[in-house]
């Protein structure tokens, strides 16, 4: 699988909320090769040595663009958020193993929390309507991409921690009901670790396959430096350190030792 490092022009840079930004970059090679759930490793500024890993939100093969949505968390992403359409970004990618295991299923439910929501959009699209979404946010101000999911999903449920939008509660409350009444073939989840842990536990309880996308502080992004370790289980059930950049970011939830 080909992987690239190059400068690519930003074609649009929008703000989705106070801290969340939505960029589209023209990069024909990446757009033709990327899979849902893969990520790009971006130089935020010449002032920052380390790249920032950001999941791919949409792959537009027709217009040769990659869309990514990121949260401003620290100095690096703050500098990145200052970029405008017409600026170039140095991108390394596409990287990691995406949600390709989902190709074996006909229908899915995607479960996203906060900034974990964006990578699930391309996953949802790949099911051509045979996918429902359960999206959770802190509050209505933090809600992002809901219309995008309505465009490609059968059903979209939204939860907020404070009840200011959609159902008052967590994504797992909605997921539990769904699993009781109409279990999907597979679940794809991305979000805070505690959410993933709870989603994985529910999936196991209802005997539904589940894939989760993990996050960890990253160095090289290509599997060489081994800093982005995450705890997984090997075939004997023993705990080992896998690496988010090369073994993931998407893992079968059964393998992850939360």
């Amino acid at each position: 699988m080909a992987v690239y490092q190059d400068d690519f022009p930003i074609v649009s840079a929008e703000k989705l909320s106070d801290t969340v930004f939505d960029f589209k970059v023209s990069c024909p090679q990446l757009a033709s090769d990327a899979f849902p759930g893969q990520f790009i490793h971006v130089i935020c500024s010449a002032e920052k040595l380390l790249r920032r890993p950001i999941s791919i939100c949409e792959i537009d093969k027709t217009n040769s663009t990659i869309r990514f949505v990121f949260e401003q968390r620290g100095e690096g992403t703050r500098l990145l958020s200052g970029k405008k359409a017409g600026d170039t970004l140095n991108i390394l990618g596409p990287l990691g193993k995406g949600f390709t295991a989902l190709y074996a299923y006909d229908s899915a439910v995607v479960v996203g929390g906060g900034i974990g929501v964006p990578p699930l959009l391309e996953v949802a699209k790949s099911f051509n309507g045979a996918c429902d979404a359960i999206l959770g946010f802190r509050n209505s101000e933090a809600a992002i991409l809901i219309d995008d999911f309505f465009d490609v999903c059968g059903d979209v449920s939204v939860t907020t921690d404070d009840g200011s939008l959609g159902t008052h509660g967590f994504v797992t409350d909605v997921l539990r009901k769904r699993l009781e009444n109409d279990p999907p073939q597979v679940i794809a989840a991305c979000g805070p670790t505690i959410m993933l842990k709870n989603v994985a536990a529910l999936a196991k309880m209802y005997n539904v396959d589940c894939y989760v996308s993990l996050e960890e502080r990253m160095g090289c992004g290509v599997g060489a430096c081994l800093v982005c370790a995450c705890r997984t289980r090997d075939e004997n059930g023993d705990i080992k350190h896998s690496h988010v950049c090369s073994d993931g970011p998407v893992f079968n939830a059964e393998e992850v030792a939360f």
Partner: peptide
Amino acid sequence: REGNPPVRIAETPMGILNSVGLQ
């Protein structure tokens, strides 16, 4: 060797700290 638990990397001004622990 399985190395150290994460977090294993921190950024510093024009540098990094790592603690992979010889995985």
